[in-house]
């Protein structure tokens, strides 16, 4: 009995944020102390879905940006982690990969900014992609590090002794085992980029208007309705990932 009530309570706590986002995104003139006796409207959603809205542009930009960052980090991280794992002193290289992971992205952005200004990268999409890559790439290296264990190495050696070159080894020995992990890493680096606000805002100086930047913009403009709409859009991809495979959501860098 107590367990059941506890579960219902926890579930309510978890569902409330989504409910609040949805509730506000269809609200209008939500003045104190109104709870349900204010105007409800589909106008914000209609505006968003009309195609030309700034929010739609933000959503598309966010998707393209996160997909790029996720893809490049995953591919680079996969091959680089192999090179790093097979080095003898790999433990210490691995430690350095943790540093960008633990430092707050916005602080990292602050310290990087001088170089980004120098190379005219501030305020540009490329600048934001590169800055986010500096965070997601080390993460991907950490992620794949545990994959390159003795079992895979032995498998690679086996294929080599049978006459296979690296392309064959990749196709026959490595990729079949790594497929699942590659997907998980892609989605996790995608989400790191998707959720990122501070670094994006600082390097993009407000010109690269991802969904997270728009959320804060609407908050500052005291427009909770559009902030809620943008927020709801932000939770859609992770929710889809949760339903399809919740592994995509768990960060495993501190594990064997």
């Amino acid at each position: 009995m107590i367990n059941r009530s506890l579960f219902i309570f926890i579930l309510l706590c978890f569902i409330i944020p989504f409910a609040v986002l949805l509730y506000l995104s269809v609200s209008s003139e939500w003045y104190y102390p109104s709870l349900a006796d204010h105007q409800f409207t589909a106008e914000h959603w209609r505006w968003f879905l009309s195609g030309g809205s700034t929010l739609m542009q933000s959503a598309v930009l966010s998707i393209l940006l996160s997909v790029s960052v996720g893809f490049v980090s995953t591919v680079c991280g996969f091959f680089v982690s192999r090179a790093v794992a097979y080095q003898t002193k790999s433990k210490w290289w691995l430690l350095t990969a943790y540093f960008p992971y633990v430092i707050a992205p916005v602080v990292f952005a602050v310290m990087l900014n001088f170089y980004f200004l120098r190379f005219n990268l501030t305020g540009t999409i490329y600048g934001v992609i590169i800055a986010q890559f500096f965070i997601t790439f080390p993460y991907a290296v950490l992620f794949f590090f545990g994959f390159w264990n003795s079992k895979i190495r032995n498998l690679e050696n086996l294929v080599a002794t049978m006459g296979g070159d690296f392309k064959v080894t990749l196709k026959e020995a490595i990729l079949p085992s790594a497929k699942g992990l590659l997907a998980v890493c892609f989605f996790q680096t995608y989400l790191i980029s998707w959720f990122e606000y501070g670094l994006t805002q600082f390097i993009g100086v407000g010109k690269v208007q991802t969904l997270t930047v728009m959320v804060y913009r609407y908050i500052s403009e005291a427009n909770p309705y559009l902030a809620a709409l943008a927020g709801f859009l932000l939770v859609i991809p992770p929710l889809i990932l949760l339903i399809s495979n919740r592994r995509f959501l768990l960060h495993k860098v501190w594990s064997t």
């Binding site: 579930l11 944020p17 606000y197 909770p224 932000l234 939770v235 949760l242 959501l249």
Partner: peptide, 19 residues
């Protein structure tokens, strides 16, 4: 259901908590 909070970006959660 324990995975649900992992789907919410910090900036969005901050907004929700404020509301």
């Amino acid at each position: 259901s324990l995975f649900l909070p992992l789907t919410i970006p910090p900036i969005v959660l901050a907004f929700v908590i404020f509301q």
